[in-house]
Nucleic acid binder design. Structure first.
Lengths: 197, 197
DNA sequence: CCTGCCACTTGACCTATGTCAAGTGGCATT
DNA sequence: AATGCCACTTGACATAGGTCAAGTGGCAGG
């Protein structure tokens, strides 16, 4: 069927964890809204309440916050086949402190929070799907905390390279510096000293 | 029934999210194993594979890792009514880099990973229960990352006090210093400068 | 009442990383 | 070819927080 074309990636992702009948597939897709974002366009802005999750079918986004001095700190990087949202805001219904912004042209399938609740009611197996994804995301998040607490900047950069190999090239040094938690100037010096070693 | 006495706290916790019949309650409890830990006893040691979750009915535990210089870095603090596990190890079946240790005498109800799978099969609503808990834990974890990235040590301490008010007193300065990511010496100086201000 | 021990404090010094401002060098537009 | 822009680099300096080792002061056990 033509209507499911743009949904292939998400259906494959879902199929890794739970099986859906044809009717369930149709219902699930009916709750999703496809949306394109151009580079630097926002999926979410600070102050808004995050009431949807986005599944990326192409492109790449970052979520970040700005501190008092307007320095950008990247919290997450998400690429095709990943869900992204401000969980803090989504789960506790609080205003978001994050910006979520497309780093390159990006296509996303949006699922609103109320629609997700409907989905859970109609197809309870989606509880399992999201449980599994969230447990993984949580595990990765915990790892990030231990990295920040226990590793120096150079080692955090190694970790970044390992985990984001495929997409490291689409990020400027500034972005990477922000993700690993150092300034661009320091990161530049760090790279230089690595090259000569 | 006498047999469910020690299970009251966890049943109340579960009841906040899903309703269980009497039979389901009995089955759920049959998968749990109660265990006492004395102060400084380990629930999990580095190198082991974490194959269970622990629900605390009393007491307090910390999870931490040791870096190359044997400095302790506290990842999480858990108190009564919280689940604790090394999700990194539990989810990906990798050897744990964490220690989980009782900070005071603690009682836990243990649920092994295979038993949890059985639970999901027999009572699928537990998928929802754990989805909700994990989403909250993930949201809190994300917040911790943004705190570490964007706030100076003194502000991270404020956050700690806000979030762990009730139990802050059971932690030594060393533990708190480790949680917020500074050395005991620096933390001591920080407190002094706060007092005089 | 001593003795140890343990948490905490403090001083002197050190280092990783930040700040700010002035380059440099591509590369896209005209 | 000139222009401008943007990412990156670099120098000089500043600072948050670390290190190590020597106190101090409770308080628990004998």
């Amino acid at each position: 069927m033509k209507m499911t074309t743009g949904y292939e990636p998400i259906l494959q992702n879902v199929a890794k964890h739970i099986a859906l009948s044809e009717g369930e597939t149709t219902f699930f897709c009916s709750l999703l809204q496809e949306r394109q974002y151009h580079k630097k366009e926002y999926l979410l802005r600070e102050g808004g309440i995050c009431n949807q999750l986005a599944f990326l079918t192409s492109g790449c986004v970052k979520s970040y916050l700005l501190d008092q001095k307007s320095n950008e700190h990247i919290l997450t990087i998400a690429i095709a086949d990943w869900w992204v949202a401000d969980y803090q805001s989504l789960v506790f219904d609080t205003p978001s402190e994050l910006f979520i912004e497309a780093v390159e042209p990006t296509t996303a399938l949006l699922l609103t929070k109320p629609d997700r609740e409907i989905l859970f009611t109609r197809i309870p197996r989606f509880e399992q799907y999201f449980r599994i994804l969230t447990e993984r995301a949580f595990a990765v998040s915990q790892q990030r905390i231990t990295d920040i607490l226990s590793l120096p900047a150079a080692a955090r950069y190694e970790q970044f390279l390992r985990r984001y190999q495929r997409i490291a090239a689409s990020f400027s040094q500034q972005q990477i510096a922000s993700f690993i938690g150092v300034t661009p100037a320091f990161f530049s010096r760090m790279l230089k000293s690595k090259r000569s070693s």
